[in-house]
Amino acid sequence: MRVVLPGDREGIYYMYLEGIDVPMQQAYIPRPKDTVIGKVIAEKKNVAYIVDISSFYAMTVLIKGLDTRLKQEDIIIGNVGDNLENLENIRVLKGGVLIELPPSKIPRVIGTRGEMLKHISNITGSKLEIGKNGLVWMNGGKLHTTIKILETIVRRAHIRGLTDYISKEFGER
């Protein structure tokens, strides 16, 4: 298992494990169409809401076209627009628990074709919404177990047999 460091080769800016295409750690940079989760932190009166997505700039939700008003502290999920500024197709996520994970681990939380996500829901009964920016929202079911599973995925994302490990540790429902 070899470690690739920034600058080892042209175009390498993060740390990689040889053989794994995605960096082990990567701060989130918004791309068009990304699904992200954020929190409303301010309102530009009658124009837009400002949404903190835990990145180096906040996103904007235009009030025109919204069928519902948002309030401060609302958790919302949406898609990054082509202009990289606006959040579109937004839905409000009521109640539940919001947790922030390293963005580079999100693919592992989802799994191939969403398999890990299904696995988690089967075990705990929780419903989850996943943001590429590392924010995960969950509601219902055994939430404390869901949180523990997510933390386990973050700790073991780079280790083989993760799905089986989770089945063993947390049991199938």
Binding site: Y13, M15, Q25, A27, S104
Partner: peptide
């Protein structure tokens, strides 16, 4: 900085 996943040119 590398551990934080911040883009670095070189060590």
């Amino acid at each position: 900085l590398i551990d934080a996943g911040i883009a670095i040119r070189d060590i």
